[in-house]
């Protein structure tokens, strides 16, 4: 088999030659000790005293979930199963129920989630659920210190997720993805096939 002759240049590097002064090790030791002493007496520390001083979490951090409420204080979720379908870790479980038609408060809604559970231990905090949600009902907050003593208490149900909303909505550190107050574009005027797609810039994804 003949191959085209290929030339490669390899650069050989040699260790720099040590003079006799450097070979005594002493100058290097002195300069090393000087560096160590300089740092020891500089008085600067980079340590953050964690439980007392909490870090500032950026608003695009993906922490514990919350279920948003709408203006009437109801759960904003419309039980469309989009998040449950999108979830790669299968940690969301929704059971939908028809909205109580007799109640005038629920007149504008067809469905609502009867139960909404998220297994926080199974979740990988990828944010696909909030991306899938058409009404911005589920969001990831910047709560990062999630702890629990049992697996059972790490399975968050609807009430707990709503309480996370109550706890974080006024903390001033809302997720930057949030659409506080307004429902998502899908819930406004459902664009049908007849009407065609929404004009550019108005749809959820531009």
């Amino acid at each position: 088999m003949t191959t085209t002759k290929k030339t490669k240049t390899v650069k050989w590097g040699d260790e720099p030659k040590l003079g006799w002064v450097e070979a005594m090790y002493l100058p290097a030791i002195v300069s090393g000790v000087a560096t160590a002493l300089k740092h020891a007496f500089s008085g600067k520390t980079t340590t953050r005293q964690y439980p007392e001083v909490e870090p500032t979490i950026p608003p695009n951090y993906r922490g514990v979930h919350r279920l948003n409420r709408d203006e009437a204080g109801r759960v904003k979720c419309v039980a469309c199963y989009m998040c449950q379908t999108a979830c790669p870790a299968n940690c969301i479980e929704i059971i939908a129920a028809p909205a109580p038609k007799d109640d005038p408060k629920w007149k504008d809604r067809d469905k609502y989630p009867e139960t909404f559970t998220i297994d926080e231990l199974r979740c990988i905090y990828c944010g696909m659920c909030e991306e899938a949600c058409p009404v911005d009902a589920i969001e990831l907050t910047s709560i990062y210190d999630l702890t629990g003593l049992t697996r059972q208490e790490m399975i968050y149900d609807k009430e707990k997720l709503l309480s996370v909303y109550d706890q974080t909505v006024n903390s001033g550190n809302d997720p930057i993805r949030t659409n506080r107050g307004a429902l998502g574009p899908a819930s406004l005027e459902a664009p049908t096939a007849k009407q065609g797609p929404p004009p550019p810039g108005q749809g959820r994804h531009g």
Partner: peptide, 28 residues
């Protein structure tokens, strides 16, 4: 000589810091 060593170490690269590869030879 420690002072001297510090100068050598801290000298910026553009000022002709001696590189590791002092000799290069090409091999085919």
């Amino acid at each position: 000589s420690a002072r001297q060593l510090q100068f050598t170490i801290n000298r910026p690269r553009s000022a002709g810091r001696p590189s590791i590869a002092q000799t290069t030879s090409e091999v085919t």
